Deep mutational scan, measured.
Amino acid sequence: TETREFDNEEEARKEAERLRRKGQDVQIRKKGNRWELRRT
C-alpha cells in the first residue's frame, strides 16, 4: 500500500482520478487537516 498526503481535497481527488484511469484502486480519506490518498 502506498500513501501520499495532500494539502487540499481537490488535489487529492485529481490525483485519485488520474490513478483510477490507469486502473489503480485508490481511496481518499481525511486525516486531520490534510487528505491521504491510499493506493492498494
Rank of each mutant, 00 (worst) to 15 (best):
R38K: 12
E9T: 01
D7P: 05
A16Y: 12
G23I: 00
E36W: 04
T3Q: 08
R29F: 15
E11D: 13
R4S: 08
R13D: 05
T40S: 09
R20P: 01
E5H: 09
I28N: 00
G23T: 01
E36L: 07
A16F: 11
R4L: 15
R34T: 08
E5V: 14
N8G: 04
T3Y: 12
R13H: 11
A12Q: 00
R34P: 00
R39P: 15
E10L: 08
K31Q: 07
Q27K: 06
R18Y: 09
E5K: 06
T40G: 09
R20T: 06
R13E: 11
T1A: 12
Q27Y: 13
T1V: 13
D25I: 14
G23Q: 02
Q27A: 08
A12F: 00
L37Y: 00
A16N: 00
I28E: 01
T40P: 11
R29E: 12
R13Y: 11
A16Q: 07
W35A: 02
E2S: 11
R21C: 13
V26L: 03
E10Q: 10
R18E: 10
T40H: 09
R29H: 13
E17M: 08
R20Y: 05
W35L: 02
Q27E: 14
A16D: 01
R29G: 06
R18A: 09
E9F: 15
E2T: 11
T3C: 14
E17G: 05
I28F: 03
K22A: 14
K14M: 11
K14A: 13
V26S: 04
Q24G: 05
N33P: 10
T3M: 12
T40L: 13
E2R: 09
E5R: 06
R4A: 10
T1P: 12
D7H: 06
D25A: 12
N33V: 04
N8M: 04
R38L: 15
K31Y: 06
V26A: 05
R38S: 14
E11K: 04
T1M: 12
F6V: 02
R21T: 09
I28S: 01
K22M: 15
V26I: 08
R20V: 05
E5L: 14
G32C: 03
L37G: 02
E17S: 07
R38G: 07
K22N: 13
G23Y: 04
R39E: 15
D7V: 06
W35N: 02
F6W: 04
N33C: 08
K14V: 10
R34Y: 08
R29S: 11
R4N: 08
N8W: 03
E36S: 02
N33F: 05
R38W: 14
L19E: 04
L19K: 01
G32N: 06
K14Q: 13
R4Y: 14
G23E: 02
V26E: 00
R21F: 07
F6Q: 00
T1L: 13
R21A: 14
I28W: 02
R20F: 05
F6N: 00
V26W: 14
K22D: 12
D7N: 06
R20I: 09
A16E: 04
D25Y: 13
E36T: 05
T3N: 08
V26T: 05
A16T: 02
N33Y: 04
N8K: 05
R38F: 15
E11G: 04
R34V: 13
T1Y: 14
R18S: 08
Q27R: 07
Q24H: 14
E5M: 14
R18N: 10
E17I: 08
E9M: 08
R4F: 14
D25T: 13
E2P: 09
E36A: 03
E15L: 04
N8D: 10
R13F: 12
G23D: 03
R34K: 14
L37R: 01
R34S: 08
R13P: 00
T40W: 10
E5G: 06
K30G: 03
R18K: 10
K30H: 05
W35F: 04
A16L: 09
I28L: 10
A16H: 04
R21V: 08
R21E: 12
R39A: 15
G32V: 01
R39Y: 15
E17H: 07
T40D: 09
K31A: 07
T3H: 09
R29L: 14
R29Q: 11
R39S: 15
E5N: 06
T1W: 15
V26F: 09
R38M: 14
Q27S: 12
N8R: 05
R4H: 09
K30F: 06
V26M: 05
R38D: 10
A16K: 04
V26N: 03
N8L: 06
L37W: 01
K30C: 08
Q27V: 14
E36Q: 06
E5Q: 09
N33R: 04
Q24D: 09
K14H: 09
R4G: 05
K30E: 04
G23H: 03
D25W: 13
E9V: 09
E9H: 07
F6A: 01
D25Q: 13
W35D: 02
R13L: 14
L37I: 12
E17F: 06
A12L: 03
I28G: 00
D25G: 07
T3V: 13
D25M: 13
G32T: 00
G32H: 03
Q27D: 08
L19G: 02
E10Y: 10
W35T: 01
T40E: 10
K31P: 01
W35H: 02
K31S: 07
T3R: 09
R29V: 15
E5P: 03
A12I: 02
E11S: 06
G32R: 02
K30L: 06
R18L: 10
K14P: 00
E9N: 03
D25E: 12
N8E: 05
L37N: 02
K31D: 03
E11F: 03
R18M: 11
D25N: 13
N33K: 06
R21W: 07
L19I: 04
E10S: 07
E9R: 07
E17Y: 09
N8S: 14
E10G: 07
E15N: 03
E2K: 09
T1N: 12
R34F: 09
R39W: 15
E10I: 08
L37P: 03
K31W: 04
Q24S: 07
E36H: 04
R4D: 07
D7A: 08
L37C: 11
E17R: 10
F6R: 00
R29A: 11
G23F: 03
L19S: 03
R20N: 05
L37T: 04
E15M: 07
E9P: 05
A16V: 06
I28C: 04
A16P: 00
T40V: 14
E17V: 07
T1E: 12
A12Y: 00
G23P: 01
R18W: 07
E15H: 06
K22R: 11
F6L: 01
E15D: 02
G23L: 01
E10D: 11
T3E: 07
I28A: 03
K30D: 02
T1R: 09
R34C: 14
R34L: 11
G32L: 02
R21N: 11
W35I: 02
F6D: 01
E17A: 10
A12K: 00
Q24N: 07
N33S: 08
R38Y: 15
L19Y: 07
E11W: 03
E9S: 03
K30M: 06
F6H: 01
E2W: 15
R20K: 09
W35Y: 05
K14E: 13
E15T: 05
E2A: 12
E17W: 08
N33D: 14
T3S: 10
D7T: 07
E2Q: 10
K31V: 15
E2H: 12
F6K: 00
N33T: 07
R39F: 15
R29D: 06
E2Y: 14
E15G: 02
K14L: 11
K14Y: 09
L37D: 03
E10K: 08
K22I: 13
G32F: 02
E11Q: 07
N8T: 15
Q27N: 07
K22F: 12
N8C: 04
E17N: 10
R34Q: 09
R39N: 14
E11Y: 03
K14R: 12
R13Q: 13
E15Y: 08
G23M: 03
L19Q: 04
R29P: 01
T1I: 13
E2L: 13
R39I: 15
E15W: 08
A16W: 09
E5F: 15
W35P: 02
E9I: 13
Q24K: 06
R38N: 10
